[in-house]
Design a protein around this nucleic acid. Structure first.
Length: 404
RNA sequence: CGGGGUGUAGCGCAGUCCGGUUAGCGCACCAGUUUUGGGAACUGGGGGUCGUAGGUUCAAAUCCUAUCACCCCGACCA
């Protein structure tokens, strides 16, 4: 992608109103733009990050046998009435009406929709277990948005729902998802702690939160000297342990739902081997994509800008042409592009300082510079974003560098 | 919703206390000339119902009232 044609505008100044470093850097680097409080545009380079995150999640989920679907965003309000969640989640549930006055909830989570889908089929024990998931925008009418992407009213979420014969079968999936989430966040460059927590309005008996330790985070949780990790409501109830308090960003959550929804929603059953109709045993699992993106920035930046982990980097290479290097850089860009390497090419007519500063701000892992100076030795300079030193290699070795 | 704060050009701000020419500055944008390894220089240019509504006054960005939006702290969540 040529920067001269890319819809990416960095800014030198950003309002001092935002307190979170991720909000500042993501706005400054042209990744996101605010619409109104708690609602953001994801600009081209920001959307690339979201897609990278989703691709990593999808790959792991698919490998684990989960199946991606799409549900409508507007949920018939009757479904939410069935589970009494128009009251319990009411403070953050948004509704709309269509021209026939039919009322819908704007989906903030999709348990009812998935259960309604599943009960349209007469399932047998042979169909179990299965796990359906989706990526979709979620709406929550939060009392207050804060911290840029950390807490918003509209966000992309991966939400998954598993269906089982019984608790034993569910527990296998629950553990599998716990491991999968830990692995996914590791791939994304995030070290998570898994805290026991209460289910809140989601329902069920227990759940675990995936938390990235961070001072800007708003989740208070506790870790004991025996290795137990718990959200504050659970920790205060458990006086046996000696707790150390921490703050962090909750990026994911896995819930045991048990028979909660299959009891409240009529027909959420399967026919067992003995010919009897039995309620489905459920679990659900969520990851906030935008919040995860913010958490990555909180964990990976320096005073000059973002330092994207390579797995989520919007591009693999940031190529810069400085004076005298334009023609060779054009050729190199064309070559890299042809090889299918994701490269952002700064071909703008800007000063060297501005181009280099933008590269640091945007945070692509590998920077290549071609200029009059490097060409004196038929070379190309390369520098990894997290390193301070740059090196020059012969132009002919650039592809070798990228292979390694 | 309670407490604190802010709304002036696309962005960042000064001006408001103490009312008084055509409302300023920096960045960005457009044109031109010179520049080009760490956010270049000069010249010229475009862009504003001073958040909105009402009031006081000869006169309102400035004073008064109401209202909206946004940010920060608290209660809730991915």
């Amino acid at each position: 992608m040529k920067l001269s044609a890319y819809f990416l505008k960095t800014t030198k100044q950003v309002s001092d109103e935002d307190t979170s470093i991720s909000a500042k850097l993501l706005k400054q680097g042209g990744f996101i733009q605010e619409s109104v409080s708690g609602r953001f545009y994801f600009l081209p380079i920001g959307q690339r990050i979201q897609q990278k995150i989703m691709a990593i999640i999808k790959q792991e989920m698919d490998e684990a046998g989960c199946q991606e679907i799409v549900t409508p965003i507007l949920h018939p309000i009757e479904l939410w009435r069935e589970t009494n969640r128009t009251d319990s989640a009411g403070f953050e549930l948004m509704t709309v009406k269509d021209r026939r006055e039919a009322e819908f909830a704007l989906g903030g989570t999709a348990e009812e929709m998935i259960v309604d889908l599943v009960r349209k089929y007469r399932l047998s024990y042979r169909d179990l277990p299965f796990h359906l998931y989706q990526f979709s925008p979620k709406f929550r009418d939060e009392l207050r948005a804060r911290g840029g992407l950390l807490r918003v009213r509209e966000f992309m979420m991966k939400d998954g729902y598993s269906f089982h014969k019984n608790e034993d079968d569910f527990k296998v999936e629950y553990q599998k998802m716990r491991d999968l989430y830990t692995r996914v966040f590791e791939k994304l460059g995030l070290k998570t702690e898994v805290a026991e927590s209460d289910n809140g309005y989601i329902g069920g008996d227990y759940c675990h939160e995936f938390i990235v330790e961070s001072d800007i985070g708003e989740s208070r949780y506790f870790v004991s000297d025996t290795g137990v990790c718990a959200h504050e409501d659970r920790a205060t109830a458990n006086q046996k342990e000696t707790w150390i308090e921490k703050k962090g960003i909750e990026v994911g959550n896995i819930f045991q739902l048990g028979y909660h929804y299959s009891t409240l929603m009529k027909g959420a059953t399967y026919t067992d081997q003995d010919g009897k109709e039995k309620p489905l045993y459920m679990g659900c699992y969520g990851i906030g994509i935008g919040r995860t993106m913010a958490a990555i920035v909180e964990a990976h930046h320096d005073e000059r800008g973002i330092v994207w982990p390579s797995a989520v980097a919007p591009f693999r290479v940031h190529l810069i042409a400085l004076k005298g290097g334009e023609s060779v850089a054009n050729d190199l860009y064309a070559n890299l592009h042809r090889q299918g390497i994701e490269v952002l090419y700064d071909d703008r007519d800007k000063s060297a300082g501005e181009k280099l500063a933008d590269a640091d701000l945007i945070g692509i892992p590998l920077r290549l510079v071609i200029s009059h100076r490097t060409l004196q030795s038929s070379g190309c300079e390369y520098k990894y974003r997290q390193d301070s030193q740059a090196q020059v290699i012969p132009l002919s070795d650039v592809m070798k560098l990228l292979d390694g």
